[in-house]
Design a protein around this nucleic acid. Structure first.
Lengths: 282, 282
DNA sequence: ATTATAATGAAGTTTATTCTTTTTTTCAAC
DNA sequence: GTTGAAAAAAAGAATAAACTTCATTATAAT
């Protein structure tokens, strides 16, 4: 399989626009080629069957059927070799075990978080985030990445979202901009930086709606939050909450996008059109 | 697969002579059923196509096509393991459905990413990240949160990790610090900001080891990366890759921590002791 | 702007596959 | 050995897939 894949990778640059789309899809999901007909594959990627066949030709096959046969064989061989791999327990694939195990754990934490999520709170939070005039997001140190992603993504969606930047922003100024039409989102995780907590307190005093995202139901931020989302790890876990928090944020942002779908479509269109070639590759 | 196989086994005694032959062959070599047409399967076991079709009927399928599709799916375990577990039928609430669905999808993407992860690459990357004198991390715009988290966390672990800051850092200066003992980590996701790509190119030219984290096997960063990790979403998905990327990073950082465990323990101890009460709550 | 070149998808043709119907074979009972 | 029931094969019809051609559209070069 890898041989075929790297062949596709190496030829990728010579391909036309349509072929590139097919190639990308092939690399991402070769199973689709093994199991479906040419038309089906084409439909899935919005390309004509003809282009799929041309892709086969470009790789040196006589047609789609030939490519499909080859993919099928390689895929099934890989399966069996992977199966063998699982059985040998020597030390070299400890790492495989390790990475996989950790990621499975992350997935489990996400499911558990989803399970525990309070629907009412979720709906209310989404509602405020969609409607608020202004949104201010804060999170420092270990929580800063979360705050950054959340504000960046939400700003794409609805605008008027601001990330508090501890290095350059003035706390008092930012806080003074908060009022009844504002929402403040605080990311406060273990060690619970006082900066964020105090901001939440002040924001609330100014009448803003405060959403707290944290790792414990008794975290200090709870006092100042109208809504509290908690992402909890299994005890004694060395995991990081980040994957689960991002999944939660993803759901929130997605829900906001759905709620404001027309506004969202307009904004992203404008954003896409703005892109200048000299800033981006491909 | 096992379910289907044992069904065949249990019905075996009731079968006619011809069907028994087909059943035997099916148990021995189900791949043939996944990949070949009815006639071909028949020929291989000296039985008519009709008998193969009858075999499909005997198992309760509408015809050979239906059997084949099922076998294909089971062999490539297209059926996601999670979907089986989390059949959410209980909730009537649309919002609950929504948030949960999104998060379940995130979990699935993580599992798939774990599945596809190349062990060798993972080991090699961890090795470099643990041993390198210096590590430089870059990611702008939508990738910036990832870069921030990764550099922050890895820096806690081993030190000498630097995040490239587009607003204040000088590209040339940062690049010129790279050499054979350095590792450069590039987060390059859709729209593929040129800044990161060019930095990777230059870093490589300076002899640094380059690790690319991206969303496609043909993303532009691939040319300049010694190791490429791809986190792919199912096509047509409106999801964000962030949760899966964070899970991958989590695994990487975790592996580095294990590798450098004594160093890591010392560093975090120092860090913990440093904390002054007036910075943190509780 | 104009032309030449290449890429694309719609429509049409051919080939392959599945499924149904009909005929033939098998085999046991008499 | 004939007969009849049951199963398999062969033939045929219907369907679906793969491939080809060609007109249209996009891209690049002048």
């Amino acid at each position: 399989m890898d041989a075929l894949k790297s062949k596709v990778q190496s030829k990728y640059d010579e391909f036309s626009k349509g072929l590139k789309m097919v190639a990308k899809h092939f690399l991402a999901n070769p199973e689709a080629f093994a199991m479906n007909s040419g038309v089906q594959v084409g439909q899935e990627i919005n390309v004509s069957e003809t282009t799929v066949i041309r892709f086969s030709h470009a790789l040196g096959y006589s047609g789609y059927s030939a490519l499909q046969k080859d993919v099928q064989e390689q895929l099934l061989n890989k399966k069996s070799s992977l199966f063998e791999f699982h059985h040998m327990k020597n030390s070299t694939d400890m790492d495989q075990e390790f990475s996989k195990k950790m990621m499975v754990k992350d997935a489990e934490v996400i499911l558990q978080t989803a399970e525990r999520l309070n629907v009412e709170d979720f709906t209310k939070a989404v509602d405020h985030l969609a409607r608020s005039e202004r949104v201010l997001v804060s999170g420092v140190r270990s929580s800063h990445a979360m705050a950054q992603w959340f504000s960046f993504t939400l700003d794409l969606m609805r605008g008027n979202v601001r990330l508090f930047r501890p290095d350059t922003d003035d706390i008092m100024l930012r806080i003074s901009e908060m009022n009844e039409g504002s929402t403040f989102v605080a990311f406060s995780f273990h060690r619970y930086a006082l900066e964020t907590i105090n901001m939440a307190k002040e924001a609330k005093r100014q009448g803003a709606f405060v959403i707290g995202i944290t790792d414990s139901e008794v975290a200090p931020i709870r006092e100042h939050a109208d809504i509290l989302f908690t992402v909890q790890l299994p005890i004694k876990s060395t995991l990081d909450v980040a994957p689960a928090v991002f999944s939660l944020m993803n759901a929130i942002v997605g829900a906001v996008a759905v709620k404001n779908s027309e506004q969202f479509a307009k904004r992203t269109k404008v954003y896409e059109e703005l892109q200048l070639n000299r800033f981006f590759g491909e």
